[in-house]
Design a protein around this nucleic acid. Sequence first.
DNA 1: TTTATTTGACCCAG
DNA 2: CTGGGTCAAATAAA
Length: 306
Amino acid sequence: MSSSGGGGGGGDVPAERAAAAVNDLMEVREGATRLKGWLEKQSSEWTELMDGMLIKLSSALSALDTGCAAGTSAAGSVDGVLKPTAESAARRTRKRSFSRRSQRSSCTRVTHTLIDGHIWRKYGQKEIQNSPHARSYYRCTHKSDRGCDAKRQVQTCETDPSKYAITYYGEHTCTTAPMVIMAGNDDRGRNNLVSFARTFPQLADKQEEGAAPTQQMSSSWCTSDGVFSTSGADPFAQTDELAVVVGSAGRTSSTVGSVPDYGGLGDMAVGGGQGGGTSSFPSSPSSLEFMVNSLGDEDFFGRCDP
DNA sequence: TTTATTTGACCCAG
DNA sequence: CTGGGTCAAATAAA
C-alpha cells in the first residue's frame, strides 16, 4: 500500500509521531467521552465541562491531522490456506474497467473500532501475504445510489489485534455525515437527548473475522432513559460540520424523525430493542438525508490527502 | 421478500 | 508470474 507520504504536507512533526499523537489523543478523548457519560449522571455542569474538553480535543485532533501516518508494517508469516470448497458454476466473462492500484490518495488510521460514522458495505476479503490477518474491503454503501466512491480497507493490527488499521481511499460524495447527539437533562430530571457525541452510530460494521466482538464497539448513543454511553475513537473527530439531534427522552424518533438503525446499532442499543426508543431508525440509508442535508455536505472525511 | 456478507474466480499492475 | 483488488454467485440474515 502506498500510503505515500506524499500527502500530509503537514509540518515539522514527523508523520509517524503525528500519527502516534493523534492516536493518543483519540484514546484520551475516548476516555473523556466515557467519563462524561458517568458524569452526566451526576451533574450537568460536569457534562458541560467535559463537552468543552471534548471539543478542544477534537480541535487538537483536527489540527494534528496532517494526513495520517501509515500504521502498519508487515512482518510475519502467513499461511494463506484457502480451502477450495464447492466449485461455483462457471463464471461469466466479466468486463472490467476499474482502476486498480491507482495513485489515489490514501490515509491509514489505527483505531480500535470500525465505526467511523459512515456506512460501509463489505465487498471482499483477502489473505495478505506477510500478514497474519486478512484484509477486508469496504465501499461506501452509497456507491450505488449516489455514486459515492469512498472505500476503505480494514486489517487487524498485527501488534495489537484489538485494533484495526483502516486505510481510506477516495472521498465521500454522499452526505452521510456524522451526527452530534447530545444527551443532557433539564432541571426536572427529564432527559433531553441533545448531545455532542461526534460519532453518529450508524452502522457498526460487522466485526471482522476473528475480531473481538461487540464489546469495544460501544458507541455513543442515547437511550430512552438518558443513559449515554460512548466510546469508540471515531477516526473523524475533526468533524467540522455537526448536526444536532434533539428529542425527548424515550421519544427521540418522534421529535426529529427517525434515525437509521443500520443494524450495528444493536451493539449499543442499551436496553432498547429493535424499534425501541433510539433504535427506530428507518432502514434506508437515504432516510438520513433529512438530517444530513443541511450539513455542509462535502466530506467530513479526514483530510487524508493533499 | 430484500439486503448484506461471504468467498472463489477473475483480472491487472508491478 | 504473482499479489492484491474487485466482481458477483451463493449464502445468510433481517
